[in-house]
Write a protein that binds this DNA or RNA. Sequence first.
DNA 1: GTGAAAGCGCTAACAC
DNA 2: GTGTTAGCGCTTTCAC
Lengths: 385, 385
Amino acid sequence: MIRCIKCNDVSSISKAGKVDKKQRYFCKNCNIHFTIPEKREDLKNESEKKQNVTIKDIAEALQISFSTVSKALLDNPVINPETKKKVLNMAKKMNYQPNLNAKSLVKHSSNTIGIIIPSIISSSFYPEVLQGVQEILSEKKYNSIICLSHESYENEIANCNQLINNRVDGVLISITSKTVETAHINQFKEHNIPFVFINRAPETIEASRVTVNNYDAGCKAVEHLIEQGCTRIAHIAGPPNLIFSKERLKGYYDTLIKHKHTIDQSLIVYNDLYTDNSKECIEHLLNLKNKPDGIFVYSDFIGIELIIAAKERGIEIPSQLCVVGMGNNPVSAIIEPQLTTILGPTLEMGKIATELLIDEIEGKNQKITNRLLDVELIVRKSSLK
Amino acid sequence: MIRCIKCNDVSSISKAGKVDKKQRYFCKNCNIHFTIPEKREDLKNESEKKQNVTIKDIAEALQISFSTVSKALLDNPVINPETKKKVLNMAKKMNYQPNLNAKSLVKHSSNTIGIIIPSIISSSFYPEVLQGVQEILSEKKYNSIICLSHESYENEIANCNQLINNRVDGVLISITSKTVETAHINQFKEHNIPFVFINRAPETIEASRVTVNNYDAGCKAVEHLIEQGCTRIAHIAGPPNLIFSKERLKGYYDTLIKHKHTIDQSLIVYNDLYTDNSKECIEHLLNLKNKPDGIFVYSDFIGIELIIAAKERGIEIPSQLCVVGMGNNPVSAIIEPQLTTILGPTLEMGKIATELLIDEIEGKNQKITNRLLDVELIVRKSSLK
DNA sequence: GTGAAAGCGCTAACAC
DNA sequence: GTGTTAGCGCTTTCAC
């Protein structure tokens, strides 16, 4: 026998489907739908699945309202310290874990940042950057979602959308070597999501960026090779559409010109990260009739390949060929001969970019920042004649 | 002049605070609170912040109900194809991005898995595993949250809580070398979150795990060293509380015993990943009066350090000392002499564990699986007398 | 100091 | 085939 919860009538009641597994009723008099309130305990029998503890459960256990529980949990000063203590204890006792999805929904912010990087296995560069990022993140109590674009433009677009869907509070991004259009990145602006470029940035977008001084890297490398007496200096350059490649190349050019060397286009080759043509690049240079006596390679990884290939051909390093790499890959210090390299502060880069981003998220910094980090030449055997 | 939205009376109305920046009213007759409905456009003037597009916005633009929009977006077959097309077009036009937090809240699942690993920079092992994980994840349309525990037990506990708070659908975990208690991991069970161990697993928890055949690795390494004529075979072992260390050590023991070698405890040293005592381990072995003539090192990284240290002391490899590492670090193939190593399928490990986890999440697999992956000995110069 | 209620954006059960 | 409604777990405003 069901009574209307409003008019208390019995005859006017009809069944009206089910809601949340409970019978729903309709009162013709009052024109309202209702269900018979049950205690949460009773439900447990129906659905065996153990539900997560919510603030409502804590409230019920303590016989107080759930908004009081919420306030206590948020350390709202208006709440009685006694009550707060009771709530905190009960939360612990019941093993309460707040639902961050619900919180994000009402707060319009997720306390999470997104990270888009091209790769995690091709070198130790991005792992080190990530390490720096994570250090700041855990210090500032932010979470992260990491996306790998695998140097694919399509993946990068998908990653951007995913991060928007997840309503991240901000994004750190290092673009792929294929990224030319940037509409997908500009989407973040439409959604009021701040973003900071790490290491690789497009020229066309106005946004903060943290990069190493690639121009200076090119200068330092070539300057050093010239000092060592090299006269035909080649360059294995990075993907041509990435700024860092262009800048290192410009440093290479300018330094050669400064020292009145002639520029020989056959001494410049470009690496494609997606197809990975590093072997071809190396072969091209080593097969030249008029061989180079110094090579600045934009990455240690390929520098190491170059050393191995040269040794196989009986080319003596450094007496016949000096090699300078970049990145300070751990291997560089181990191979024979040890590879001269240019060191950029990878861990620092991750840290600085993350701090910058969080400042933007928290409104502490509005203006666009362009951080250029210093590089350092580490001279080793591969370039010491 | 405000009228009650129910009884249409004017005199019974009083103001009752504000809700969502709109005036709220109370009708004494009907005992109800209400606000005067406004169009969303009007609100825009008040709050300049551009809001994200929601299904309600699409519904309004199309003059249909938002649940129809929801169904259309979810490709519910009940919806008229015409309507569906209109909705899809409008969603695209308005640049609609669904709010995954809201979806997670309703669906009680986030389509996201959590990953807890100890480190990302100490070797290429975890980056490669992650690569495999991400490949499956993007194929199966899952997202991920990556946590780094930095070999710290406290961090691992915090990571577990974070993942529970984020309501991930499942967890991949590789425990720290310090993890002995496992209550924090068992919490996942209480929250109905399936988890799979990768590479490192505690002995005490019943859960699926994907590991390499570490016992066999120990056997293969020592067997090979014995074949090469080594008679005093040492072992640099991993952290003693990790199963993989124990198993490799057991392989080492059993193979020595099988070949009637005597066990000399001074030939066994343990690496502590947290303090990183690898230098001390190496020095201990190389300083022994009665030096070993073969060493099985549990990781290539330390194997490489060992080779360098031995060369510095003028110990000839392999004639005076054979070295076998494990992990097939890219450097192993490059140093001089090249390091013999044991190769485990890292990428595969990530893939298999992820597939296993997703199957558990989707209820396709209930039973606990214990996948043991085969290892392979790669013989190089460092162990070939 | 506490409680009631609205609403974040969405899904799904049900009514029509 | 479309619309109405409740509810996911939480924060926040306002009433008392």
